[in-house]
Nucleic acid binder design. Structure first.
Length: 620
RNA sequence: GCCCCGGUAGCUCAGGGGACAGAGCAGCGGUCUUCUAAACCGCGGGUCGCAGGUUCGAAUCCUGCCCGGGGCGCCA
């Protein structure tokens, strides 16, 4: 039995049959259009190829379907296929074939074959900023990016994670200058800085530098009282002084002034330590080694602009330097140097693409970033291609993809914020989820030992948040609701974790009561699988869809496909669990077969949860 | 003004050329001396935003419109 998944076997068999049936009349690239049947009464799989062929060849579709069926060689796999409706070809797999396919996928890779040509996928994720707490936006960038990275890893691609750390530029200089003033005045201690402090300072620094010029103009025009006018004038003058100070700090940073760099490094260190701890708590594999600050690109930016100007990719416009993208179908030009000589985040992102392709060997670049950056990435990608920065060693352009995600909304349908309109700290949000999960665990399973309960609450609470984030199409906004994501019932992370708990519980009992070693249920000496009951069939078919689901999710950058799949697998297992006693199966052969099915389900659920970055549990 | 993304059951969402449009929640009715009921089974519930068009076949593709969100050279 080949180890490939059923669908690709069927595709191949149908291709042969179509060629045999139609010969030279078969249009090139004709697709067998194999799909899993929606309705079990139609069988397990169907081919929809006959209808389009009928149109192309001007023959009755059912006749074409029949001529394909006549040449199909599926005896080893399926019952004789049937033609139905307008020309559907229905295929029902034989029980023995199901057993054989399951046995073939019952190996450590769970039937996932390493790719012939592995990609080097560079995944941009997390994207924290200096002196800022992580909030729900970072939740999505981290959770989705990490899940995509894990998907590619499981499929056998090389993966490089990149946490693009916003540690450079004027806003950063503002907060650095602000902290320096506090330190000089003895109002802050560099050694005792926390990210909460920095988050406050960041906003204070922004506010200080924000001159209310329009307000002042209006006050002058409409002749406001001298007191209001004086206040506004003072505000504007103060803000302009602060801004000038920040600009001096920026120049000092850029020129490598050690006294300010010391402060800046400390701020970066405090920020990263806390953010990476949050990533760790989230179970996201984002570490210092994955982190590259914008500052690490600073020496490349002038060179890039000069390079692009010299090669005519970029040109000057109104004192600035732009890349015109009208030839790439984008009306908005990409601005890469301001008229004051400063660089922009587009410049850094171009440098990032160059580094990821040229230095890291990236063949596919994926950016898990907010959908509001869509135009920006279209521009940067187009600019990078024009510049040749996306060209891989093999000569082709790397795939450049924006895995855009929507906004997290509160239950009022507006962007998720605290009542006072502040961003919700990610760590607070996780605390709340874990607290609620702890309450549920205490109530549902009071027997769980205290120590384990805390670990379970952490896994369930965080798993719930992550699963809710991953479970819907990433491009859409979604409504954040603790109640829904932590529900005792429903399409949730806890439900999946619970399905696996039940699986593992059976295996544990089998070991304790019957002496069946888990290792004996897998591998070449494992007991034969016998599929007889409808719920066994349904479970078998669900298991067999694992590999193609992973591939589809990775290709489309849609982790929610894996979520939906795991829910359907858990549901298939629940049906099996209900109607097919495992430990008390009618006979020994059935018991051993069902134990192996249970073990395989456990392996797939475990692998699936791990791929999503959700912690699998033994008990909950 | 131009561009991008959404609009599917009361609610939250899948499905994105193929068979009668699905799931979860909520509602109603069943199933626990348990393989962990955080589960399972059943019932009701839909002009797939609107209008045209393409097609043997449209929730799905095309055009226009309506509603909601976002973006659009010197912020990141």
């Amino acid at each position: 039995m080949p180890t490939r998944d059923v669908e690709s076997i069927l595709v191949e068999r149908f291709r042969h049959a179509m060629r045999a049936a139609l010969g030279d009349a078969l249009p090139v690239g004709a697709d067998p259009l194999i799909a899993a049947s929606r309705n079990p009464s139609f069988g397990d799989f169907q081919s929809n190829a006959a209808m389009p062929l009928a149109k192309a060849l001007g023959r009755p579709p059912r006749q074409i379907a029949q001529s394909i069926v006549d040449r199909l060689e599926l005896d080893d796999l399926a019952e004789p296929p049937t033609v139905a409706g307008p020309g559907f070809i229905n295929v029902r797999l034989k029980a023995e074939a199901l057993a054989g396919l399951l046995a073939a996928m019952d190996e450590p890779g769970l039937g996932v074959e390493p790719p012939a040509e592995p990609d080097t996928v560079v995944v941009d994720l997390c994207g924290v900023n200096l002196a800022k707490q992580m909030h729900v936006g970072h939740l999505r960038a981290t959770v989705i990016g990490d899940a995509l990275a894990r998907l590619f890893e499981r499929l056998g691609h090389r993966v490089v994670r990149q946490n693009h750390f916003g540690d450079w530029g004027l806003p950063i200089a503002m907060v650095t200058a602000y902290v320096r003033r506090l330190v000089d005045r003895g109002e802050a201690d560099l050694e005792r800085l926390t990210l909460d402090d920095l988050d406050r300072y960041y906003r204070a620094a922004q506010a200080e530098c924000d001159a209310d010029r329009p307000g002042l103009e209006a006050a002058r025009r409409f002749g406001l009282g001298p007191k209001a006018l004086a206040e506004l004038e003072a505000q504007v003058a103060g803000a302009e002084e602060r801004l000038a100070d920040a600009k001096r700090a920026l120049v000092a940073l850029q020129s490598g002034d050690e006294s300010i760099l010391t402060i800046w490094r400390r701020i970066a260190d405090v920020t990263l330590t806390e953010c990476l701890a949050t990533c760790a708590r989230l179970g996201a594999n984002v570490t210092a080694e994955h982190t590259a600050g914008e500052s690490t690109y600073r020496d490349e930016l002038p060179e890039i602009v000069e390079d692009l100007l010299a090669r005519g990719v970029a040109r000057e416009s109104r004192g600035a330097v732009i890349i015109d993208l009208t030839d790439m179908g984008i009306a908005e030009p990409l601005l890469i140097r301001k008229s004051d000589g400063g660089f922009l985040y587009a410049t850094t992102d171009l440098a990032g693409i160059r580094r990821r392709v040229r230095d890291m060997g990236g063949t596919r670049l994926v950016y898990a970033v907010d959908a509001r950056q869509s135009l920006h990435f279209r521009q940067v990608f187009a600019g990078a291609i024009k510049a040749g920065y996306a060209q891989t060693a093999a000569g082709a352009d790397a795939r450049l993809e924006h895995a855009a995600f929507g906004t997290v909304l509160g239950e009022d349908g507006r962007p998720f914020k605290t009542r006072s309109g502040e961003n919700v700290r990610l760590s607070d949000l996780l605390d709340e989820a874990v607290r609620r999960a702890g309450d549920a665990v205490a109530q549902k399973n009071p027997d769980l030992p205290e120590g384990e309960r805390a670990a379970v609450a952490e896994a369930v609470g965080i798993g719930a948040v992550k699963f809710a984030d991953l479970a819907t199409d990433r491009i859409k906004d979604y409504v954040f609701s603790f109640d829904r994501m932590l529900a005792f019932e429903g399409d949730t992370g806890p439900y999946l974790q619970y399905a696996l708990v039940r699986v593992r519980s059976i295996l544990r009992k089998a070991q304790e009561e019957l002496g069946v070693e888990p290792a004996s249920l897998t591998g070449p000496d494992a007991p034969p699988i016998v599929i007889t009951e409808p719920d066994e069939r349904a479970l078998a078919l669900a298991l067999l869809r694992f590999g193609s689901t992973l591939a589809g999710a990775a290709e489309s950058l849609q982790p929610h496909r894996l979520c939906a799949y795991l829910l359907s697998l858990a549901s298939a297992f629940s049906g099996f669990f209900q109607t097919c006693p495992v430990l008390r199966a009618p006979d020994e052969a059935a018991r051993r077969s069902r134990l192996r099915l249970t073990a395989l389900t456990g392996a797939v659920l475990t692998a699936g949860l791990e791929t999503l970055g959700v912690t699998p549990l033994d008990r909950m």
